[in-house]
Each structure stands twice: as C-alpha cells, then as structure tokens.
C-alpha cells in the first residue's frame, strides 16, 4: 500500500489536484492500522463478513470468500468480530510495511 504512494517530487505543489474526478482513484485503504487476515481452512462461506463490512471490501468470487480488498478496507475489524468461526484475525499493519 505505502509503496504505491508518490514521493514529494512526483506530485503537484501546494496540494493542487490537476485531474478532475480523481476521488475515484483515491485508495482509502491507506487509512488502515490493522489488516484482516482470513484463515480459509475454517471458513464456511456464511458471508457474515460480506454482509457486515461497511465498505464493501470483502472479496467474494463464485460464492467463495476469497479475502479482502485492501485498497479500500479501513481495518475496522467488524468482520473479525461477527465471524462465527473466528477465522478472521486483525493484524498490525506495520508488519506488512516494506
């Protein structure tokens, strides 16, 4: 996540935004301090996490919970709390920093 952000020499000065509608490309996942980690061996695809996620960040493909869209997940941890199998763990984000 962090490495995708640009350095101070690569961005317009003064906070100017030069491209209209760029909120679309703004990755709010950068706000996260904890990251959900899924233990798939215990997951029963109940979709509780998918229902409760306030940011549509649970990745479900072909009726199977695959993981999380980290570009948008803000690390609120609701998924981990509601999981009936306790197979989602919230881990400190700094572990994943390069």
């Amino acid at each position: 996540m962090k490495s995708k952000l640009k350095g101070y020499k690569e961005i317009p000065i003064g906070g100017l935004i030069l491209d209209a509608g760029n909120a679309k490309t703004y990755k709010t996942g950068g706000w996260r301090s904890k990251r959900p980690i899924l233990d798939k061996s215990n997951c029963i695809n109940c979709y509780f996490c998918w229902f409760y996620c306030p940011d549509n960040s649970v990745d479900v493909k072909d009726k199977d919970v695959k993981g999380f869209k980290l570009d948008y997940c803000k690390g609120c941890g609701i998924c981990a709390v509601v999981c009936p199998k306790k197979c989602i763990k919230m881990e400190d984000e700094d572990k994943f920093e390069e």
């Binding site: 101070y8 003064g14 209209a20």
Partner: peptide, 21 residues
C-alpha cells in the same frame, strides 16, 4: 480548459510530502 482543485483535504498520506516541497 484545465480545471483544477485548490486547497483539498490532505491527510497523513500526502500532507507531509507537501510540507517537504
């Protein structure tokens, strides 16, 4: 012809870079 945004919200992901500039 070239619309821009001035003075947007700038949180901990870019504020520091703007100060560095």
């Amino acid at each position: 012809e070239n619309p821009i945004t001035v003075g947007p919200l700038d949180l901990y992901d870019y504020y520091f870079e703007h100060k560095r500039q």
